[in-house]
C-alpha cells in the first residue's frame, strides 16, 4: 500500500513538474470554528483519517486540528494568531466569517504561512479558496430531471438557508437549467433550510395549492422530508432529487426495490476538508502555479452506485469522500486557465 502511495506521489510530482521542496518536515494546522452538527463531524472524521495517514507516511510532519469553543469570529481570529506563533507552515481553515477574519489571515500570510480556506471561505486575496461548484450542481439537477421526466412538467423547488451564498448559487443553477429545458416550469418554491423536518412542513403547506408536480429540485437534507409530505398528502410520488443524506438514500433504496424508482443525488462532501489539506501540501511542496480560487466538483450518486455507498454512511449522517493527493493535483490542473 505504501509503495503504491509513494509511486502515486512520485507520479504526482512528475505530473506537477515543479515539485521543489520536501514537505515531510512541514506542519499543517486545521482551524475549525464549529463541530456541532453531523456534517462538521463527518468533515473532522474524514480529515483525521487522511491526515493521520499522511503523517504516518511522512508526507507532512504534523497535521493538528483546532476547534474553537464557540462560533465567534474574535475567538477564531485569536486562534489563527496563536497558530502563527506555534510556527505552523500552513493553515487549513473553515472560517466563521468570510470577511471579519481577514486581519488575522493577512498576518498569517505576512508570516509566510500558506492559508487554504474551504466551505466557510475567506475573502483575503492572499489565501486559497476551495469552492464547490454549487451552481453547476443546481443546473445538473435539472439536466438529470430531464432524463427521468422526458416529457417535462411542473417542478417544485426547495430552497436552503436564506441569505447564504450556497443557497444563492444552487438556486441560480436551477434557474439556468430550467431556462435550458423549457419543458419544465417551476410552479412553487419553499424554504427548507437543508433540514428534513422544516422541508416536510413547508412542502405540506404548499402542496394543496399546487397543480400536479412531476419533480422536486432541492439542495440536500430536504429530499426525505419532501417525500414524506407528498406521501402524507396522498399525492403521486414525484422524482425527488436527493442530497446524499443517509435517510434520503435509504428511502430511495426502498422505493427502487418496490418499483424501480429512479432519481439522482448530489451534495458537497464533508471530506472536501481533505482536499484543502492536499492543496496546502501542494503549495508547501513549492508549486507556484496553484490558482487562489479552486472550483471543485460536488459528490454525486446515480441509480447504479448509490446502494454501494449507503452502508458506509452512518445513520443520520451524510456521504463523504476522502480525497487523495492525486485528486488535489487533478483539481489544481483543472483550475489552471
Amino acid at each position: 500500500m505504501k509503495k503504491i502511495f509513494v509511486l502515486g506521489a512520485l507520479a504526482a510530482m512528475l505530473a506537477a513538474g515543479t515539485a521543489l521542496a520536501d514537505t515531510s518536515g512541514k506542519k499543517i494546522a486545521f482551524s475549525n470554528n464549529y463541530a456541532g452538527n453531523s456534517w462538521r463531524q463527518a468533515m473532522l472524521d474524514s480529515y483525521g483519517i487522511v491526515t493521520k495517514k499522511a503523517v504516518a507516511d511522512k508526507v507532512v510532519g504534523a497535521a493538528d486540528v483546532f476547534t474553537t469553543a464557540d462560533k465567534e469570529v474574535p475567538t477564531q481570529a485569536a486562534q489563527v494568531q496563536n497558530l502563527i506563533l506555534q510556527g505552523y507552515d500552513a493553515i487549513v481553515i473553515n472560517a466563521a466569517s468570510p470577511d471579519a477574519l481577514n486581519g488575522a489571515i493577512k498576518q498569517a500570510c505576512d508570516a509566510g504561512i500558506v492559508v487554504v480556506s474551504f466551505d466557510g471561505i475567506v475573502t483575503e486575496p492572499c489565501a486559497y479558496r476551495v469552492v464547490v461548484d454549487f451552481k453547476d450542481m443546481g443546473k445538473q439537477e435539472v439536466e438529470q430531471m430531464a432524463k427521468f421526466q422526458p416529457k417535462g412538467g411542473n417542478l417544485l423547488e426547495i430552497r436552503g438557508l436564506a441569505g447564504t451564498s450556497i443557497d444563492d448559487a444552487i438556486h441560480a443553477g436551477i434557474l439556468e437549467g430550467v431556462a435550458a429545458h423549457p419543458e419544465f416550469k417551476i410552479v412553487g418554491s419553499v424554504t427548507g433550510d437543508w433540514d428534513q423536518t422544516t422541508a416536510q412542513k413547508a412542502v405540506a403547506t404548499i402542496l394543496p395549492s399546487l397543480p400536479d408536480v412531476v419533480g422536486v429540485v432541492d439542495q440536500g437534507g430536504d429530499g426525505y422530508g419532501a417525500a414524506q409530505a407528498f406521501a402524507a398528502a396522498g399525492k403521486p410520488r414525484p422524482t425527488i432529487i436527493m442530497g446524499n443524506r443517509q435517510d434520503e438514500l435509504q428511502w430511495w433504496k426502498e422505493q427502487k426495490e418496490k418499483d424501480g424508482y429512479q432519481t439522482w443525488s448530489a451534495s458537497i462532501a464533508p471530506g472536501v476538508s481533505t482536499l484543502a489539506f492536499w492543496v496546502a501540501q501542494q503549495v508547501l511542496d513549492g508549486r507556484t502555479d496553484v490558482p487562489h480560487d479552486l472550483l471543485v466538483p460536488y459528490l454525486a450518486f446515480t441509480q447504479d452506485d448509490f446502494e454501494a455507498a449507503l452502508p458506509k454512511i452512518p445513520k443520520g449522517g451524510v456521504a463523504s469522500h476522502e480525497y487523495t493527493q492525486e485528486d488535489a493535483v487533478a483539481a489544481i490542473k483543472a483550475n489552471i486557465k
Binding site: K71, E72, A100, G103
Partner: peptide, 17 residues
C-alpha cells in the same frame, strides 16, 4: 478597537463579550 484589528465586521462579532 475590535474592528481596527479584524479589519472587517460581522453582526455577530461581539456576542461572546
Amino acid at each position: 478597537a475590535l474592528i481596527g484589528i479584524t479589519t472587517s465586521a460581522d453582526a455577530n462579532i461581539g456576542n461572546g463579550y
